[in-house]
Simulated scan of single mutants.
Amino acid sequence: MGPFDWLPRAPLESVQLDWLNGVELAVLRLDRIDPLISGNKWFKLTEHLALAQQAGASGIISLGGAYSNHLHALAAAGKRFGFPTVGLLRGHPQDTPTVLDLKAFGMQLHWLGYGGYRARHAADFWTPWRERYPGFYPVPEGGGGMAGALGCAVLVEQARQQLSDVGWADYDAWWLAAGTGTTLAGLALAEACARPVYGALAVPDDHGVAQNVQALVTGGYALLDASRGGFAKVDPLLLEFIETTEQACGVPLEPLYTGKALLALKQQIEAGRFAPGTRLIFVHTGGLQGRRGLAV
């Protein structure tokens, strides 16, 4: 497999919104790195792919749902860089726009049902799949773990190199959506407590994000609830906020991660958490391909 030396740079862009109340906001546009291998998913994959290459793997096998941004990026990377991919999917067969892409990219799909997918953390889960696909390297759901976090750590330096593009000499903190906490952990590792990293939780507390992050980094971050009742829960206020924000600044959002995270930031600014003059970097984690299955 490999080589995987592609490391695109996400542009840093200043954003003006009337609710910022003097807070300065710049968006690290991971959604703009590539039309198909988009968002934070590629950065979460880079170290996993390096480990697979070192192990002499012949392909990659991973897990996700029928709208998975992770599987979408993995399958697109497999097609582009010429390595086979296998996706283990939650639920029962359905042809969502994402699934149709996975098939077009050449990913071999297996549907686990819901009970079978819940067993993914069992100690012997990978045994039959290793036997069926010998030589394939298993990547955790969402590209998580320390390898995924280390892949995301490079984003800190990417942003720092572009501060002058938005007229900044420095910045005060990070803000991003947290689905597994892997990207947040990577930023916190790179910052080493120099600046706080705020994670707006796109999932409820029982999804284990806090535990995931605690296993990777000891401090320098905070998690705030932004799930609005649960993962993939979409409400009229959120949809209205996304529509008005896109019209105001031209940055496309989706309702599962980036929309919820930016709305949570608005609410925190209105509550007085950040004083005027604070400079925040908002990480746009991508995920726009998933909008195709939602009424947005």
Score class of each variant (00 low, 15 high):
A57Q: 12
A10C: 04
R9N: 04
A123L: 13
A190K: 04
L51K: 12
V251A: 07
A173D: 06
D31H: 00
T127V: 14
I60Y: 07
F125L: 14
F282A: 09
A104C: 02
R118Y: 06
E246K: 06
L7T: 13
F282N: 09
S62H: 03
E246R: 01
L201H: 00
L63F: 08
E24H: 01
R292S: 15
T258N: 15
Y171T: 01
G151E: 13
Y221R: 00
L51R: 14
P8C: 03
Q211K: 05
P128E: 10
V27S: 01
P8E: 01
V154A: 09
G167I: 01
G135C: 07
L265M: 04
R292E: 12
I269V: 14
A66K: 14
L150S: 10
A75Q: 11
F81W: 15
L187C: 11
G142Y: 00
A194K: 14
R118C: 05
A104Q: 15
E141T: 05
E131W: 12
L12A: 06
T96D: 09
Y67G: 01
D5H: 10
G106H: 02
P196L: 04
A177G: 15
A248Y: 05
Y171K: 00
E24N: 02
D225I: 04
S227A: 15
K233L: 03
L74Q: 12
R132M: 11
R292W: 15
E246P: 05
H207L: 10
A104N: 11
A52M: 02
A173G: 13
A190C: 08
L253I: 12
G87H: 09
P84R: 09
G229C: 10
Q108D: 12
L189Y: 10
T46F: 10
G22V: 11
D34K: 01
E270T: 11
P236Y: 08
P196Y: 03
R195I: 13
L49Y: 13
S227G: 05
E270L: 11
K260M: 06
A222M: 04
K260I: 04
D101Y: 08
L102G: 12
G186R: 06
T258R: 05
Q289M: 08
F4N: 02
G78L: 06
L184S: 02
L155C: 09
A173W: 10
K44G: 13
Q53Y: 06
S38E: 12
A248K: 03
Y137W: 14
A77D: 11
G2E: 12
F81N: 00
F43Q: 14
H207G: 00
G208W: 14
D170W: 00
L237W: 03
V139L: 14
V296D: 02
K103M: 02
P252L: 08
D225A: 14
A226D: 09
L189I: 13
H207P: 01
G250P: 12
G272P: 13
L51E: 13
E13I: 07
S68C: 01
